[in-house]
Design a protein around this nucleic acid. Sequence first.
DNA 1: CAGTGGTCTAGACCACTAT
DNA 2: TAGTGGTCTAGACCACTGA
Lengths: 245, 245
Amino acid sequence: MSLAEDRTKPGAGTLYKTIRQDIERRILTGEWPPGHRIPFEHEIMEHYGCSRMTVNKALSELAQADLIERRRRAGSFVRRPQFLSAVLKIPDIRAEIGALGRAYGYELISSVRRAANASDRERLGVKKPCKVIAIRCRHSADNVPFAIEDRLIDLDAVPDAAKANFKIDPPGSWLLHHVPWTEAEHAISAIVADDAIADGLHIAVGAPCLVIERHTWRQGQPLTAVRLVYPGEQHRLVARFRGSE
Amino acid sequence: MSLAEDRTKPGAGTLYKTIRQDIERRILTGEWPPGHRIPFEHEIMEHYGCSRMTVNKALSELAQADLIERRRRAGSFVRRPQFLSAVLKIPDIRAEIGALGRAYGYELISSVRRAANASDRERLGVKKPCKVIAIRCRHSADNVPFAIEDRLIDLDAVPDAAKANFKIDPPGSWLLHHVPWTEAEHAISAIVADDAIADGLHIAVGAPCLVIERHTWRQGQPLTAVRLVYPGEQHRLVARFRGSE
DNA sequence: CAGTGGTCTAGACCACTAT
DNA sequence: TAGTGGTCTAGACCACTGA
């Protein structure tokens, strides 16, 4: 009873996607609970009347999405959910505000070029002496302060940054478009506004703020460290997760 | 000049991974900047002396990771980074504390089963009347309060929850292991502790707190809504991103 | 309309591992 | 040791689209 004949019908599209979605549905509805062994490749291949490569592509994608676990000689098994993972997309602030349909404002507060002091080196995670640019700036939406940014850029790793004009271009946007990176780490925490932050964000001292600290590397070499402070009650970081595509 | 003969040497492993990494390196070092056209599949295939399927697998993975964009008839192009996205993994709290090597403590503060009132329905996003469980509990690490949890579970969507023993099992752990879900949304924000939170977390009134609100659905049907409050200066959400595996 | 990528086939050999 | 998944081949046809 091959299903190959039906392949023209299902508006779904391609066969391997059909297979993947069929299995995905069984897992997500609980029909195949964690630990359940899903049919062997050769069984699925007979069921759909297709070649093993097609089945393999479907199963490989499910394995990549951590929905199943594949073990040689044993078979493929439904994984138990490990954590509520979510893809947190932290866009460039200029693009983010633009996407909200609000007017983006940018103001460079200070920009200093200096040999890295001990504190700079610790923050960037570099050991040997280097030059850095230290930038402080403010982003706003419709003339309301949106975030305060405090950034260090390692000039040895990003020499082009010396030529950038940070009076016009926000450093985050410039870096995103000019410097390829390989690793990044974000840490999110909460603080209360001190005098400087309250002043910069036009909020009350003691108001809650959301802090994002981001470090970016290229092949293990530190590129930049940034600290973004948002008004905590006005700004929410939203992360969505679709079980899979 | 086929490179097929060298295939036994490079400890790297498989051929398609070698191809993927070769291209990845060129992109990440900036040798191939955004917009650069990658060699056609048949060119790469000749260069490595392999079949097109192998090249295709490598390029497909790069496209899946958004590192390149593939256009029929035109070729494959290096994409410009869209945003600093990061995979935020929010593990089950019990597992998280265990992973830190600290003793996990759990305390059910209250658990009420009731017909959903208007506020419950709004929070869950359901329109028709339903029954819910409202849970309030506290997680601790080495006897220090770690987070306060406030949760609603839709009993119509998760009838098994009526049988769970939330005096012993934290609801998050129970749900994660028993209820498959398809969509989730997280919102992260900052607040200051009011009397109740300060009391529950053993912190001062006015101290900053990190708040995670999570909604979970299965095939569009709301399952649960939870609000977790962490001491903001002690807890950091960390998200790492590897340019790609 | 020619050339690209997208998908698929019907085989093959190998590494790994549960039994 | 036998059976599974992992990878690879040398073709093929098709949809789409840029020139």
